[in-house]
Structure formats: C-alpha cells, structure tokens
Design a protein around this nucleic acid. Structure first.
Length: 107
DNA sequence: ATTCTGACGTGGG
DNA sequence: CCCCACGCCAGAA
C-alpha cells in the first residue's frame, strides 16, 4: 500500500512481501523489477534491515543460482533452510533444488 | 567530501 | 568445474 516509499528499502519490502508461499526469487530479479538495474546488492542490503519486520519473508530470496547466500544472516545456523523446507522447498547443501521450478518473478 | 563495505550479477580465463 | 575483476549504489565511519 505505501507506494510513497521514499526509501529503496520500502520498495524491496513491498516486493518481497508479495512472494507467494512456497515460491522464491532472486536479488537480481527484485533489483531489476525495481530499478531495472543491476543494483542487486542494494536488495540484499535492504533485506538486511528487514530484521525488524516479520512481514518480510527474506528467506524466500536467494541469489541467482538458488544458493542460500544469506542464511548466515538469520538467527539460527539453518533457520533459512528450515523455513524453506517447511514450505515444501527442497534444500541441499545450502542450495534450492529445482530452483527454476520454484522461481517467482515480481509482477 | 572521501573511503569502505556488502544477503549480487555478469563476463572472461 | 573454479577463480578473478569490474559494475552497481545506499549508508556508515
């Protein structure tokens, strides 16, 4: 609802919040959707600040190969993986199985 | 103002 | 398959 998001962060939260249950996307995809640019790093940065928000499923955002690059930033050592698996997503060696199959592109 | 740092991505060797 | 260099840009020191 707040398209008045003055911050880049707000936009990232907004899009991330739209990721359907059991689906995942990449930082680059979000960055492209927002800025049509390769500012994927900013997306990860923004998600870093999403800690206070529980409405931002950051665990559904991984890098372009489906690797859980940010799992180290979650509370537990494997919380991110648990969350994904609890949504029916298979994760092996910090990597999502059939990543492309679960991939979701921002609309 | 300058410098450094990233939850990334692409391209080349 | 692996490793490296560059681009990208918001924020902290």
């Amino acid at each position: 609802m707040p398209e008045n998001s003055s911050s880049f962060f707000e936009k990232v939260y907004e899009v991330t919040g739209r990721i359907p249950y059991g689906r995942v996307t990449s930082y680059g995809a979000i960055a492209k959707y927002l800025a049509s640019s390769g500012s994927a790093r900013m997306v990860g940065w923004a998600l870093n600040a999403s800690h206070s928000r529980d409405d931002v499923p950051a665990h559904r955002v991984v890098n372009r190969v489906g690797l859980l690059s940010g799992k180290h930033h979650f509370q537990g050592s494997n919380l991110m993986q648990q969350l994904l698996e609890s949504e029916g997503i298979q994760v092996i060696e910090n990597k999502i199985v059939d990543f492309q199959k679960h991939f979701w592109l921002p609309e």
